[in-house]
Design a protein around this nucleic acid. Structure first.
Length: 405
DNA sequence: ATAGGGTTAG
């Protein structure tokens, strides 16, 4: 039964339960416009989901192009419920075996943070094609970022791939290399590199970026440099950024900043990630005034507004240099609520400095944001003990006991 | 006439 449906969907699209019509084409195109513009819809009535609802209200049947567009707009955990409802509709309208729809479903569940559902869709594909494989691998890797136990399982799965007729391509390998980098799995990464060479895949900017990132994260900065220097195109901001961050990571601050200047003289426009790499390098190298310069130039000369990570780096930069007032100024200037990384940076700066009052504030904020983090309670009660505020010491200990489940 | 998969930071 399933085989028949698949045959129809992949070889004779016209035999679908719903044929493409001029009407469905127009609604699909409208949805695509909103998905591709990537800007926030002007109002909730313009989002692909409400376009779909209006399409149904007008009695227009969706066709097999409709759902990939619609599913692409569900890319956050909060959309999981909508995604599930649309999945049910997909079954009702008879498209659950369309390979495009299946891949879109895997990506939707993966973007919504639900690997289980993504895996379930994948498992129901009798003969997954390459995009489906790449999507499920990507989903596993993404979750590997969150779920530590799954990480090594995921890599093993890539390596022992039984691909009878579907072979990994550049898309696959870039995901695999990125996973190796995150894991610090140098041996797996080298294997992947050798595989790329053996298959005769061209190391373009994307694969090059992945290779540089992998080697840099795995401690092979020389190999990263080698890959970078061999790249044919030298105008890809991501490849430059990967190399710049890699050098910073390894403590080659001068080379890192030189490379940044070199990139600019090549006419490559830095982006938010490039600046993060450069500023992080300044943090580790203790280059306060240079870090501050880069931070200012980023918005003044390039119109890039700093993200919470950039602010976190700046707090870290000043904190490590013992400049607690400056670190506070950064926090006060932030247009968003500081997160645990920002308060953590302020905490470590103020601890180094012996600034007990700032420690107290930072720890209180950390406890507010992470009430189950017992480490912060312990540090805070130590702070109070140092100040001789014994009542507060007892109060914090009681609070910690309360939060324990 | 329209459709699915990739890289840099954290």
């Amino acid at each position: 039964m399933q085989g028949t449906a698949k045959l129809l969907s992949s070889t004779h699209p016209a035999l679908h339960l719903s044929h493409p019509t001029l009407e469905s084409f127009i609604w699909n195109t409208l949805m695509r416009a909103h998905v591709q513009s990537k800007t926030r819809p002007v109002s909730p009535t313009h989002c692909p989901l409400s376009i779909f609802l209006r399409m149904r209200f007008h009695g227009v049947r969706p066709d097999f192009h409709t759902f990939p567009f619609l599913l692409q707009s569900f890319s956050y955990p909060s959309y999981l419920h909508s995604g599930l409802c649309i999945h049910a509709q997909i079954v009702q309208f008879g498209f659950p075996c369309d390979p495009f729809v299946q891949t879109s479903l895997i990506n939707m569940y993966s973007s919504c943070g639900n690997l289980g559902f993504a895996q379930q869709v994948f498992n129901e594909i009798p003969q997954p094609d390459l995009p489906s494989w790449n999507s499920i691998i990507n989903a596993n890797v993404k979750m590997g970022l969150v779920n530590v136990e799954k990480r090594s399982h995921c890599l093993g799965r890539c390596k022992n791939w039984k691909l009878d007729d579907v072979r990994p391509n550049e898309f696959t390998m870039s995901v695999v290399l990125s996973a190796c980098g995150r894991l610090g799995a140098l041996e797996h990464g080298k294997w992947a590199h050798a595989y790329i060479d053996r298959c005769g895949m061209e190391v373009d900017a994307v694969l090059g970026t992945s290779l540089i990132y992998m080697y840099a994260k795995c401690g092979g900065i020389d190999r990263a440099r080698w890959v970078f220097n061999k790249l044919r195109s030298n105008n890809d901001v991501m490849a430059w950024s990967a190399m710049i961050s890699g050098l910073g990571m390894h403590g080659h601050y001068e080379e890192c900043l030189d490379l940044f200047s070199k990139m600019m003289s090549h006419g490559v426009r830095p982006n938010a990630v490039t600046f993060l790499g450069v500023i992080c390098a300044c943090v580790h190298g203790g280059l306060v005034s240079q870090g501050k310069d880069y931070f200012n130039r980023m918005s003044e000369d390039f119109g890039i507004s700093p993200s919470i990570q950039h602010y976190g780096c700046m707090v870290d930069l000043y904190g490590r240099a013992g400049l607690i007032d400056e670190a506070w100024d950064v926090i006060k200037s932030m247009p968003m609520e500081p997160d645990v990384l920002v308060w953590g940076a302020l905490l470590s700066g103020s601890r180094m400095r012996g600034d007990i009052e700032t420690c107290e504030v930072a720890l209180k904020k950390l406890i507010e944001l992470e009430p189950t983090n017992s480490g912060a309670y312990v540090l805070l009660s130590n702070v109070y003990a140092k100040m001789g505020r014994w009542k507060d010491v007892r109060h914090v200990r009681d609070l910690m006991e309360d939060k324990r489940d």
